[in-house]
C-alpha cells in the first residue's frame, strides 16, 4: 500500500514538474505578447495542482492527513483567469498586441471605451 502511494506521489511530481516547465518554456519561447499568456495561465496552474496533489498524498502517508492543499489549488484555479484577464486588458490598452476586431453587437470593447471617454 505504501509502495503504491509512493508511486502515485512520484507520478504526480513528474507530471507537475513537466507542466510547470512547459508553462515557463512557453513564456520564453512564444513570440507575441498575447500568445505568451497561454503558457503560464494553463500549464502553470495544472503543474502546481499536481505538485500540491503529491504533497497531499504525502501528508496522508505520513499520518497527519490534511486536505488543506485543496484550498491553494482552488484559489489558484479561481484567480488564474482573473490575472490573465487583467494582463490581456493591459496588452489591449497599451497596444502591444494585434488590434482586436470590433464587437459584433455593442459599440466598443470595455478597455477601449474607457480610453475613449478619457480622451474626449
Amino acid at each position: 500500500m505504501t509502495g503504491f502511494a509512493d508511486i502515485l506521489i512520484g507520478l504526480s511530481l513528474l507530471i507537475g514538474a513537466l507542466f510547470t516547465f512547459v508553462g515557463s518554456f512557453g513564456l520564453l519561447k512564444l513570440d507575441m505578447p498575447m500568445k505568451r499568456l497561454h503558457g503560464p495561465t494553463k500549464a502553470g496552474t495544472l503543474g502546481i495542482g499536481a505538485l500540491l496533489m503529491a504533497a497531499m498524498i504525502d501528508s496522508f502517508l505520513s499520518g497527519h492527513g490534511t486536505i488543506q492543499h485543496i484550498l491553494i489549488m482552488a484559489f489558484l484555479f479561481v484567480t488564474a483567469p482573473i490575472s490573465a484577464l487583467f494582463i490581456a486588458k493591459v496588452h489591449i490598452h497599451t497596444g502591444t498586441c494585434q488590434k482586436p476586431p470590433q464587437p459584433s453587437e455593442d459599440s466598443q470593447w470595455a478597455t477601449k471605451a474607457v480610453v475613449d471617454t478619457q480622451e474626449t
Binding site: M34, L37, H38, T41, K42, T45, F77, A80, P81, A84, L85, A88, K89, H91, I92, P100, P103, S104, E105, D106, S107, Q108, W109, A110, T111, A113
Partner: peptide, 18 residues
C-alpha cells in the same frame, strides 16, 4: 474559457453582450 483549450478571454464589450 481561460482555463480550457488554448483560449484566453481578454475583454468584454462595453454593454456586456460580446
Amino acid at each position: 474559457i481561460t482555463l480550457t483549450p488554448g483560449t484566453v478571454s481578454a475583454d468584454l464589450s462595453d454593454e456586456g453582450h460580446c
